[in-house]
């Protein structure tokens, strides 16, 4: 009897899981339509941004993520204690604000390490772009 109930439970669970996973491949279009209907029209985009939105693939996404290493280094050198270089590179809001909350990134230690790491990895700073961690070099040293 116990075996029967167990098998029945597993069978019902399998029947339930598959449809739940499949529903994540559709979107609630009326909700999206409502968001657009409620939005205000503006000329916020530049022409080049619109061209980028036409880029189809992963390489299009990679293009959007490119940041200038020199800009990041200069921002770190002059405004590193405020975490401005992290906002430029892209990060979680809290990670960037943590530089201010910890008295300039633990009294300037973190921005200094960021500065050294950015110089060393000048040719490829992609691991630090859109890095949500406070210690952006964690795992990359």
């Amino acid at each position: 009897m116990k075996n029967t109930i167990y098998i029945l439970f597993v069978f019902i669970a399998l029947m339930g899981i598959k449809p739940a996973m499949a529903s994540s491949y559709t979107i609630n279009e009326p909700v999206v339509d409502q968001l657009f209907d409620n939005a205000v029209e503006s000329d916020m985009l530049s022409f080049s941004s619109l061209e980028m939105s036409n880029a189809m693939s992963a390489s299009g996404m990679a293009l959007n993520a490119e940041k200038d290493a020199i800009v990041a280094i200069l921002l770190d050198a002059f405004l590193g204690t405020l975490g401005i270089h992290r906002f430029y590179l892209g990060t979680e809001t809290l990670s960037g604000l943590a530089y201010i909350l910890t008295c300039g990134g633990i009294f300037g230690v973190v921005p200094l390490i960021d500065f050294i790491v950015l110089i060393i990895n000048y040719e490829d700073i992609s691991p630090f772009v859109n890095n949500p961690s406070f210690f952006m070099w964690k795992g990359h040293l």
Partner: peptide
């Protein structure tokens, strides 16, 4: 027709 929505602002092209 492309519409881009950021926050409560949108841009239509």
């Amino acid at each position: 027709q492309t519409e881009i929505l950021e926050g409560k602002r949108k841009n239509t092209n």
